[in-house]
Design a protein around this nucleic acid. Structure first.
Lengths: 141, 141
DNA sequence: ACGATTGGAAACTATCTTGGTTACAGTTCG
DNA sequence: CGAACTGTAACCAAGATAGTTTCCAATCGT
C-alpha cells in the first residue's frame, strides 16, 4: 500500500501557504516547517504546480503561491496530484491464463478496486485546505 | 502509494480456495495459479491464517482450507489481514514544533485520514469472496 | 552591469520494501 | 522409512523513497 508520506507533506505545504495568507513563500521557508530539505519540497511543489494548485516565481523575492483560494482545494485534488498510480496494484506477474481463476481475477477485481478508490476520493473531497487552516488555527492557540 | 500487490494476491488465493469448493489445496498448486513461488504464497497464507480466514494442515495430503464460508469473507477482512499499517503515513521527520502549522498539522490530519480509511473499508465490505467466485465463473465461460 | 536570491533539475547515496529463491527443519501419512 | 506437505529463516535483486550536493537560469535591487 501506499507507503510514502508525500500526501501528508503535500497537504502540509498547501496548508502552510494558505496559512500565510497569500504571501509568497520560499521552498527553504517551507522546508523549515516540514523539517526536511528544500529540494524535497520543490519536488513536491512541482507536482502540485503540474496539477495547477500552486504557481512559482523564480528570482529574488520569488517563491510559491496558491493558484486557487484554499476553499477550492480539496484533499482529493492533492491526493491526485501527488499519488499518481492506482491505489491497489494488480499482480506483478500475470496469473496463470490456463486457470479459470487466474485468467479472470484481474478483470473481476478491476471494477471493485476502482469503486473503492472512488469511495476513498469522495471522502477526501469533503475536506478543503481552508478547513485545515481553520483547524490548525484552533489547535495552535 | 505505494504500494504492493499483496492485497490482490490474497484475494486471488481466497477466491481460488473458494472456487475449489472446500477441497484442500497446496501452496504449490496455488502458486501455479498466481504464477509465483510457493513460499510467497505461504507468507501471505500465514497472514490470512493469523486473521482466521484460512486453516492449514501439515504433512502428506495437507494444504489449506477456508476457515469460513466464502460469503462470510469480505474484501475488508482481507485488506485488514494483509495490509497492516495505516493507509496514509504521516511525516517521516516530525515537523517543526515552533511553527503553528508544523506543530498541529499531524493531529489535524489524523482524524481525516482515519475517516477516509473507514470510507474505503466500508466500500470494500460490500464485496465477498462468494461474489468474486460468481464473477469468475461468469467470466470464465 | 553586478551580485544576491530564488526556482529547476540532474545526479548520487542510504535505507526500506517487495518479491523471488534456496535451504532446511518439523509433521503426517502410507 | 520415505514422500509430501507446512513453517521459517536467510539471502538477493530491483524499485521506491528521502535526503543531499551541485550547477544552471531567471529575477531583482543597487
Amino acid at each position: 500500500m501506499n507507503t510514502s508520506s508525500r500526501f501528508t507533506v503535500a497537504i502540509h505545504i498547501l496548508t502552510l501557504l494558505a496559512h500565510g495568507g497569500g504571501e509568497q513563500m520560499t521552498s527553504e521557508h517551507i522546508a523549515g516547517s516540514v523539517n526536511t530539505n528544500p529540494v524535497v519540497i520543490r519536488r513536491l511543489l512541482s507536482l502540485l504546480r503540474d496539477a495547477k494548485l500552486v504557481t512559482s516565481q523564480v528570482g529574488v523575492g520569488g517563491g510559491w503561491l496558491l493558484a486557487r483560494p484554499p476553499k477550492g482545494i480539496t484533499l482529493r485534488d492533492i491526493y491526485r496530484a501527488v499519488e499518481g498510480s492506482t491505489l491497489f496494484p494488480l499482480h506483478s506477474n500475470t496469473p496463470n491464463p490456463r486457470c479459470p481463476v487466474g485468467s479472470t481475477i484481474q478483470s473481476a477485481l478491476g471494477g471493485h478496486f476502482e469503486e473503492a478508490q472512488l469511495a476513498l476520493e469522495k471522502d477526501l473531497e469533503r475536506t478543503t485546505v481552508a478547513d485545515l487552516v481553520k483547524e490548525v488555527q484552533t489547535l495552535a492557540r
